[in-house]
Simulated assay, not measured.
Amino acid sequence: MPIDLRQVAAISGMSGLFRIVKPTRTGVIVESLEEQPKTVVAQARHRMSLLDEISIYTTDEEGTIALAEVFDRLHQKYGDSLPVSEKPDNSELKRFMEEALPEYDEDRVYVSDMKKLVSWYDIVNKFVGFTKAEAEAAPEAAEENAPEAEEGKKKAKKAK
């Protein structure tokens, strides 16, 4: 299961990514994902996009792939650091995309999108982390063992 990006947002006009803290009457309180986080109110006039709702165009049958799935693939393939320079040029970004996501649609995925992908991956990796999918699997395993634990409790009560 890919990483959970439901509480992470990009806000137009503001650089970086933000974690949604809570809604207000006039907008949403967000916290910047950076070394020294700042709390800001994103008002209704700001265009906010949840990363969970963003997809990348592909040439396969589906037509798109969720950003969380792309991040998961990148993390499995490259780990914590992507093989791009700090300020990559257009050709380097295109080579990276061809390597990382060969089925991406070259006509509809622009270089600016690739820059955001690399930038956002670094921020998400540093401040959100990729352990959430693993942590969500653990409660599911506990739920599967729950009926056995209940039976054990019932038998213990009957033995008394």
Rank of each mutant, 00 (worst) to 15 (best):
D105C: 10
W120M: 01
L74M: 14
N125R: 13
Y78L: 08
K87T: 10
L74P: 04
G152Y: 15
P83V: 09
T58K: 13
Y78C: 09
E99W: 01
S49A: 12
G79A: 09
I65S: 06
E98M: 12
D122R: 14
D72Q: 11
R25A: 13
V28F: 11
M48V: 14
R47I: 07
H75K: 11
H75Y: 15
V40K: 03
S112K: 15
E61Y: 04
K87A: 11
A146E: 13
R47D: 07
D52R: 03
F130H: 02
V40W: 04
E148K: 15
F71T: 08
E98H: 11
S85Y: 02
N90V: 11
R108S: 10
R73A: 11
E103T: 14
Y110D: 11
E140D: 08
E35R: 14
T131V: 08
V30P: 04
W120Y: 14
E98F: 05
V70E: 02
D107A: 13
E106Q: 12
V84F: 04
N145C: 07
G79V: 08
K38E: 12
R108W: 09
E61I: 08
P37G: 08
E92T: 10
S85E: 15
M97R: 01
A138K: 11
E144M: 13
R95A: 14
Y121H: 05
E86V: 06
L33H: 08
Y78E: 08
Y57M: 09
V128G: 06
E31V: 10
S81Q: 13
T59V: 12
L101D: 08
L93F: 01
P147Q: 03
T39A: 07
G79E: 09
T24H: 06
M114C: 06
R108N: 13
L117W: 02
G63C: 00
M114V: 02
Q36L: 04
G63V: 00
E144K: 14
I65N: 05
R47L: 10
E62L: 07
P139E: 10
T64V: 03
V41P: 00
F71P: 00
A141H: 11
K126Q: 14
M48Q: 10
K77G: 04
W120K: 01
V118F: 03
L74A: 07
V124T: 03
E140T: 03
G129R: 01
K77I: 07
Q76H: 12
Y104R: 08
V84K: 02
P139T: 09
K38Q: 15
F96G: 03
R73V: 07
I29Q: 12
E151H: 10
E150F: 15
S112R: 13
E140Y: 02
A149F: 13
A146M: 14
E62T: 09
S112G: 10
E34F: 08
M97A: 10
V111T: 14
P88G: 02
A68M: 01
E106A: 12
R47E: 10
V118P: 02
D72P: 00
